[in-house]
Design a protein around this nucleic acid. Structure first.
Lengths: 136, 136
DNA sequence: TATTGTTATACTCTATAACTATA
DNA sequence: TATAGTTATAGAGTATAACAATA
């Protein structure tokens, strides 16, 4: 039964891709979740914690220790936000530099994964995955 | 960058499918990992712990507490194995009965997920996922 | 009253290393 | 020596509930 279930095949594929990510990008000492946060902060400079938590699918309390670590590593800063309750999140110059290197590795990882498919197969896979990802 | 990465789309799709699984099959009080173990033991009665751990992608030490719980629930038994070091794993009658109900829910879950795709899209997705899941 | 960030706490899942009993 | 199962332990990742500051 298992080998005919979409959820099971999804999990196996995701595990395989995740393993490749960890053994390449992960060698820079950063996890997939942290990379996602850095990329989103770079793309949305000054974003507050709550909307960022929503964007990465975490509870806002779960984001706190993650941001603490990125801040301790010197890659990210909490600055004053738009009101006095919120923090604006910004990459530091060191964070921007580190992220550039990480993104190079991410691109190599993606290329390695995509090499298992024809270009049109990759596009079709993306389309089908997005059909599944809708939350009805 | 994130929204164009296969790994990211895979994770989002898997999360969506997993959420549906948890809210339907999970309401029977059993996790996806446990369902996988029960299905594999049913399909391979008398299987020992080490090959089962390999099959579900866990370390054999990680399987121990999981089997403990299934045994405490009365769904699974460790019996004498082929040699005196190993255990043979078997579903109890209660476990077989429970699994039948679980599998009914799993089928309904799968049907709900597959309904987001055309039948040939589902087949194509399975094929593409298997291409990714190969461990090179 | 509602929202933002934080803390304290706990739970799940998983691995590593060391142990025992067998082989 | 090698294998099967177990234990002790630790770490990552995440959530819930309650709180202070601010809106």
């Amino acid at each position: 039964m298992l080998p005919q279930l979409l959820g099971y095949e999804l999990r196996l594929a995701q595990q395989a891709v995740f393993r490749d990510f960890e053994s390449s990008v992960g060698s820079l000492g950063i996890s997939a979740g942290r990379v996602g946060v850095l990329i989103l902060v770079e793309a949305n400079p000054g974003i507050a914690q709550s909307p960022l938590a929503l964007a990465v699918g975490l509870d806002r309390s779960s984001l706190v220790p993650l941001l603490d670590q990125l801040e301790e590593a010197g890659w990210l800063e909490r600055r004053a936000g738009t009101d006095r309750r919120s923090n604006g999140l910004w990459l530091t110059p060191a964070g921007t530099k580190r992220l550039a290197r990480v993104k190079t590795q991410v691109r190599a990882h993606e290329k390695r994964i995509a090499a298992r498919l024809q270009p049109q197969e990759r596009a079709e896979l993306m389309r089908l995955l997005r059909l599944l990802a809708v939350t009805p």
